[in-house]
Design a binder for these strands. Sequence first.
DNA 1: ACACATAACGGAATCGTTTCCATAATTAAA
DNA 2: TTTAATTATGGAAACGATTCCGTTATGTGT
Lengths: 338, 338
Amino acid sequence: MPKVNIKYLASLLNMAPSTVSRALNDSYEISPATKAKVMALAKELNYQPNPYARSLRANSSKTIGVIIPERINNFFAQVIDGLESVTQEYGFHLLVYNSHEDVEQEKKIISYLLGGRVDAIIMSVSSQTSSSEHLIQVQNQGIPIIFFDRIAQDIPTTKFITNDFESGYLGTKHLIEQGCRKIFFLSLSKEITIGKERLNGYLKAINESGLAFKDSWVLHCTQEENKNAALIEKTLFPIDRPDGIISSVEKLAITTYQVLKKTRLKVPQDVRIVSFSNMSIADLLDPPLSTIAQPADKIGIACGKLLMKKLKIKKQEDIQDEVIIIPSVLHIRKSSLH
Amino acid sequence: MPKVNIKYLASLLNMAPSTVSRALNDSYEISPATKAKVMALAKELNYQPNPYARSLRANSSKTIGVIIPERINNFFAQVIDGLESVTQEYGFHLLVYNSHEDVEQEKKIISYLLGGRVDAIIMSVSSQTSSSEHLIQVQNQGIPIIFFDRIAQDIPTTKFITNDFESGYLGTKHLIEQGCRKIFFLSLSKEITIGKERLNGYLKAINESGLAFKDSWVLHCTQEENKNAALIEKTLFPIDRPDGIISSVEKLAITTYQVLKKTRLKVPQDVRIVSFSNMSIADLLDPPLSTIAQPADKIGIACGKLLMKKLKIKKQEDIQDEVIIIPSVLHIRKSSLH
DNA sequence: ACACATAACGGAATCGTTTCCATAATTAAA
DNA sequence: TTTAATTATGGAAACGATTCCGTTATGTGT
């Protein structure tokens, strides 16, 4: 069976390949009669255009690279769902990569993508990413790149985040209002911006309230879950343990819950907890977890729309260097209530 | 700035494109000296081969299409992580699509992929998928396709599942041993195989124990969460309500928990629950949920290895028509204990 | 010294589409 | 009626990498 390509169709129809191509693309230059004939045969033989040939010719793949630091995470999954809902309408495909919070992995992925396999990149950097040399290259190659949540501040492009500072502030203030006097902050990394912003919001709330803040109130966690658990356990054991905890990422709140289960401490009686999290079942935890939920789907949709605008419209101006903030929502549940 | 391609490199080096290509691919025909020169310049100019040109020539894209019915789901995310860990080593890329449990969407995705955008497809069918006409086409086009979890039984290829029948049996038996006498089964769809298998295991356990089974013990749920909640609520309200529930999918167990929260019924005192689920925080729920956890990462890795074997080795024999079973693990927690 | 093998490279075709540039036939304008 | 414009199509180049098929040196064996 010969391969069904344009040349083959043309030979069957006694036409030139160029004519067939134009007919299939509904060109105004082709007569309705010819178009009909071509379309009919194409349908009959189930002709599918070769995407590589198209991409090579058009120098565009209709593919977007997505890099996230974690796949087993509601937030990122929701963002991708939102993104896909937009890109799909425009016939774009999503190449998804997990950097596993590893900057070396991230570099590798970027280098794959640099060859032009994708028309654009949308990413959330790993918590290890401090320098952005490997990200600058992407722009140098002329590939649009945008960021969400974990952004690279020094790359001039559009970045989508939530009101991290304000959310950190409000979450902490809520704990203070609930009577907490010793509120610890769980940080995943000093490197990433969201960590800093959320921390700054926390610090502002602490300062405003006049609590006797000490540097030891900020726990710097790592990628190693065991170490985090040990660190948190060590923190919760002494008499001068915290009576409130705000976690900058979902994972650390879960670790905290697991550690607390092994102790006699009760939530919220002994320790009150708030966490940044997009867990859908926060209300089913024991006790229900107060969360700062990010508008993941909105972020995904916004990213998608921006990219589609850039990629579909010819001579579109470059992507603006700006930070777009989509606010999070504080869901107060039992874990933080007096 | 001229584009850095093989022709450009060749012109700078005063060599033919064929020589440069061979040098870059470390061909034995090229002298070490020439190779060194080419490599050096390629590195200096940060040459990246054009993937479309390669794909067009080689008729392979080093890309695998992944279709899942749900993205916000630990199981599928874990499978993809496992899959990626293998494919990445071989330089393969993953194009991920969400069918949203919608068979029409599934057909659309398949038709995109039919053009040859991917070298193989790995998928879990939607719960609506009863016919597999659209899937047969894939094989007709010569694109390898394998299934996991939600499989299409009549497509001759390798399918990876867990011991669904046995797990359904063991989960139900466990509930019986814990004193349940009226055990309901939550089914997402009559169409998909895993639903049937798990149901059959449940039925076997029920029959063996001599409980007075009625058809109404099997609740057929849908994609609409509201309807499912209403159905479950209606079931739990009467005096002759179930004292045990086994859920064939995670989502329905969560809905059940949410419904139960609104009632006075206590878990496990009044109703004991077991669910198929890969939730990592099952032990943090109130009460901790007994789960039948599928070996998601193993499934992903197994799929990846099979595909890499097929795609990397020339003249590899076709993928076997067989069902490979990787057993699940029953984690007993408080929700099902007497 | 001659035939022959091998090493190292160049030239051109190829993959499938799209598009630039003709060209023939028909139609409209002068 | 002649020229210009339009319509509908064909031919060939181009996208970038790979590979088939030569070709020229150099080396080896007798």
